[in-house]
Design a protein around this nucleic acid. Sequence first.
DNA 1: CGTACAGTTGAGTTTATTCAAGAAGAGTGG
DNA 2: CCACTCTTCTTGAATAAACTCAACTGTACG
Lengths: 247, 247
Amino acid sequence: MATNPWAAHPLVRNLENVAPLTDASKKALAELAMQVVHVEADREVLREGDRATQCCVVLEGFMINYKVTKKGERQILAYHLPGDIPDLQSLHLAVLDSSLGTVTPCKLGFVPHKDLWEICAREPDVGRACWRWTLIMASIYREWVTNVGQREAPARIGHLLCEIVVRMETMGLAEGRNCPLPLTQTELADATGMSTVHVNRTLQELRNAGIISWKDKTLSILDWGRLKRIGEFDPGYLHLREREEVA
Amino acid sequence: MATNPWAAHPLVRNLENVAPLTDASKKALAELAMQVVHVEADREVLREGDRATQCCVVLEGFMINYKVTKKGERQILAYHLPGDIPDLQSLHLAVLDSSLGTVTPCKLGFVPHKDLWEICAREPDVGRACWRWTLIMASIYREWVTNVGQREAPARIGHLLCEIVVRMETMGLAEGRNCPLPLTQTELADATGMSTVHVNRTLQELRNAGIISWKDKTLSILDWGRLKRIGEFDPGYLHLREREEVA
DNA sequence: CGTACAGTTGAGTTTATTCAAGAAGAGTGG
DNA sequence: CCACTCTTCTTGAATAAACTCAACTGTACG
């Protein structure tokens, strides 16, 4: 399978991680017609309230899903890596309930809903993978509610860092415990519901304890065991290794 | 449609709110074979880590979905009303990432995954409604992340109360702005990530301001406009009125 | 009448926030 | 290469929000 040319396509690679796909499905996914657009860093791509008729596939770069409160505070809801379809739910929920933006410069592919409906109907395993992917996202949201609702600062930051590293590794974007982390402390703050000042001080604690290092947009986990413990991180909610166990 | 005998079935009623169903689908849903079980209040029905081979339909009563942290704190992730299938995601994610429990005494119906797969394959509109329902739940989680992450105490409580009232009304369980609320302040605290003491004081603020009253397990919204404003509540994320607009 | 649980209150403490200012980089144009 | 700007990161100090602890009230129920 890995020798197939389609396997290199980020979308194929991502959905294959979610559920097994037939060769026909992989081919069809890789050959989906996309309108490719390059977007610079820190741009809003879709806004809460917009009505979608197409989906956005991340081909290169790092995106975020977020809401803005009445008081102007931003809550980041998810990070999206290449291969993700951040607005896949718009297939069924046409009106967006959150916004989508770039963190780094991104290469995006837009696919009409119609084409996605067709491929889901023609290749049932693609439909299954898509549904399953949205369910995994829901599971991640549940974990985030818990993170923000119950854990204190070091655990919140620790948990988030663990999640990012694991997801990066799954997509082959991280080696060992080193991983690109093109985020600002402000973005970490908006994801964990903390002030930037507090994030800064919490990161210093983790650094001074020799648990992480983070410079030049690269995060290194120096003591994975301790970070996991501090962040109460158990990767079960990512549902990574259940593929073969499900019908 | 409302005159059909199946329309009274809570499951039919709920899924019909989510997406349009054919008469054949409604009949099939209402006739699903269920193992009916009565469970008393405050019981754990499914535990995080369990492996599911069936789904749980709420027929009567009030359930919660929750996680317990290493430190023993509980985070409530969702409230479930009659007609809900709180663990519908287990169709694709066999290992549960959160627990399920009763708040009030409940009547539950258990349906094997196999039967649900069959009905989804046979009646595509049921499959669509199920997927859409899980996506609406994901949208609610996104709103909760924002609620817990960004809003301060009065807004958190206000927002949660607004959501519960609206969802109750949608299921025909609330009249006007009065609504059964069989929760303790502790359960409100575990849903909003606050201490019970702080919930208590925040509720008193809302009561003293003449915005709500809450006694005998019944919540009354005395000033809906003000509660909405305090809670920054915009029901768009519940995706209630998009049915006809989606393919 | 006693027990259990939910709700309430007060006081002290902790955690995190806000505000403000300075240091360190990265990128730009002269 | 330097000066300039912009953003990010860092630090200190005052403030505010929320938590913990502990006691006490009320109510339901056997």
